[in-house]
Design a protein around this nucleic acid. Structure first.
Length: 511
DNA sequence: AAGCGTGCCAACCGCAATACG
DNA sequence: TCGTATTGCGGTTGGCACGCT
């Protein structure tokens, strides 16, 4: 923030009295000083700039100015369609890793990308459009589906975050079939007593992308061991826009999304889820903020994309009426540990799974002794996972480069590069994910209302979902999507949604 | 012409990671 | 090994320009 706006020049007029560092916009004169300094001494040691050059700027400010405006080979101006496409792709993979994204876009800075993304998000949000172009999701979903058929052994849980991240509740127009197919390949291996109740209400697994899911028990589908997994967005999202979305929209139409879990083999089926060189002019210009010095006219901004999907999530669901597609968005009250660190996930997972009370149950289907190691492995494999996602998406993007909002059909070089060894990368990703998911907190006892137990409804649901008095108040959020077909298993008026959540927000940079 | 909303941009802040003595 | 300094990163904020009413 430009503290105090353009007038925040703390040191102006007082340089001889104290060493207040100047803030606010840089002047051309300051730029020239910095340029000269870097030219002479090279980059780095930014704190020395102020000492040696007399520039009344802190090192951080100098570094930022240099990196974002003064360093050579910076591109100025609007992003090209190709660049926009790459940004979308990268964001789908990396989340808000602006620096990493910038590394893929020569001449662009993380700040530029971040600003672009945020404004784009804001625009799309206002328009009620999802964030990611549908095609990205479609391709990721398709790729994932293929991947699952290619490799996934049966009876193993593997809700791959890469695919999951692209599956968001904001995508009304999403191809239900493809997602359904994708997640039909998810298989749980667990005892009959899926232990979720013991999980803290706020318990969640998440990734930095704020793509999260919550697992709910679907009592209407209880006879089939029904669980439902809903996209979820925590309140402490790193993306304020997403928070805003959650806060301002209480309900939304969402296609069915559930997990059919049968004893011993819980198959999840998702019907849906979800820059010109600085003018070093002298004279008057030198005292103007350099940003006010006329620069090359900017190109017209690229049109906003209007694809599908988005980052916020449905936290609860209410299907007590005929319209059992009324998924509800609510702000999760307690999503413990949203730091985005895998450690949080590990700790929580271990904490839960180490619960002595349910240890035996857990051990029946999971090697508890390896939990810690597995998670560590998964954590250290962050990069490989990213690579896996990359290759997966690259694969998926191979055949069709149609973008709903972007004129370009050019794929990123990185994407193409990783096409070379997609299977190996996927394999690596799978292994890592398996390790991680082996720690998935499943050692929670059956809820009372689980089949064979009391039919009493858990009160937990109220903490993770809003009431059932939902109208589709957010239908405008998904203007292009007809209501999804009602899932037969969710048609029961007795449908109850509860239990703790499991989301992906604390996952490492898997996506 | 004035007021308002929005988009864009620049720059700051806090925190975490890393380097260094 | 520890404390400090430096660097890097992501989130946030405020100003300006522009279009619309």
């Amino acid at each position: 923030m430009v503290s105090g706006g353009g007038g925040a020049e703390l040191g102006r007029g007082h340089h001889h009295h104290h060493q207040s560092l100047k803030k606010g916009p840089w002047t051309a004169a300051e730029d020239a000083i910095l340029m000269e300094y870097v030219k002479k001494h090279g980059e780095g040691n930014w704190n020395a700039v102020q000492k040696n050059s007399g520039l009344m700027r802190c090192g951080k400010s100098c570094r930022l100015r240099w990196a974002n405006h003064l360093r050579p080979n910076l591109k100025k101006g609007s992003f090209s369609p190709e660049e926009e496409k790459i940004i979308i792709e990268l964001h789908a993979k990396l989340g808000n890793k602006w620096a990493r994204m910038a590394a893929q876009l020569p001449g662009r800075t993380d700040n530029e990308i971040k600003n672009y993304w945020n404004t784009r998000m804001k625009r799309r949000q206002r328009a009620g459009l999802p964030i990611y172009p549908q095609e990205i999701q479609d391709k990721a979903a398709a790729a994932f589906h293929l991947h699952q058929h290619h490799k996934r052994p049966q009876n193993q849980i593997s809700p791959s975050p890469p695919a999951a991240l692209l599956i968001t509740s904001q995508n009304p127009a999403y191809n239900n079939a493809s997602l359904s197919a994708m997640f039909n390949s998810f298989n749980f291996q667990s005892p009959t007593n899926i232990p979720l109740q013991n999980q803290a209400p706020g318990s969640c697994l998440s990734n930095p992308n704020n793509h999260a899911f919550q697992l709910f028990f679907d009592s209407a589908n209880a006879n089939a061991g029904g669980f439902s997994l809903l996209p979820y967005h925590p309140p402490s999202s790193t993306t304020s826009l997403m928070n805003e979305n959650i806060q301002t929209q209480t309900t939304m139409q969402m296609p069915p999304f559930k997990v059919n879990s049968a004893p011993g083999n819980h198959e999840m089926s998702f019907s849906a889820m979800i820059s010109q060189p600085i003018d070093f002019g002298t004279g008057l210009e030198s005292e103007l903020p350099s940003s006010q010095i006329p620069a090359v006219p900017k190109q017209a901004s690229a049109p906003a994309s209007s694809g599908s999907s988005g980052g916020f999530c449905a936290v609860g669901i209410s299907s007590t009426t005929d319209n059992n597609n009324d998924y509800q968005i609510s702000q999760k009250a307690t999503c413990g540990g949203n730091s985005g660190l895998l450690d949080d996930l590990v700790q929580e997972s271990n904490k839960i799974s180490s619960n002595e009370k349910f240890k035996g149950q857990f051990e029946s289907f999971s090697d508890a002794g390896d939990k810690g190691k597995s998670v560590v492995d998964a954590s250290s494999a962050d990069e490989e996972v990213n690579e896996g996602v990359e290759s997966m998406m690259a694969n998926a993007a191979d055949n069709n480069n149609q973008w709903d909002d972007f004129s370009s059909s050019q794929s990123s070089i990185e994407m193409n590069k990783t096409n070379q060894e997609p299977l190996e990368e996927m394999q690596s990703m799978d292994d890592d994910l398996m390790s991680l998911l082996n720690n998935f907190p499943l050692s929670v006892p059956l809820p009372e209302w689980y089949p064979g137990t009391s039919t009493e409804t858990s009160n937990v649901s109220s903490s993770s979902m809003t009431g059932g008095n939902q109208e589709a108040t957010t239908t405008d959020h998904q203007p292009n999507t007809p209501p999804a077909p009602a899932p037969t298993t969710a048609a029961s008026p007795d449908l109850q949604w509860s239990l703790g959540s499991c989301c992906w927000n604390n996952m490492p940079g898997i996506c």
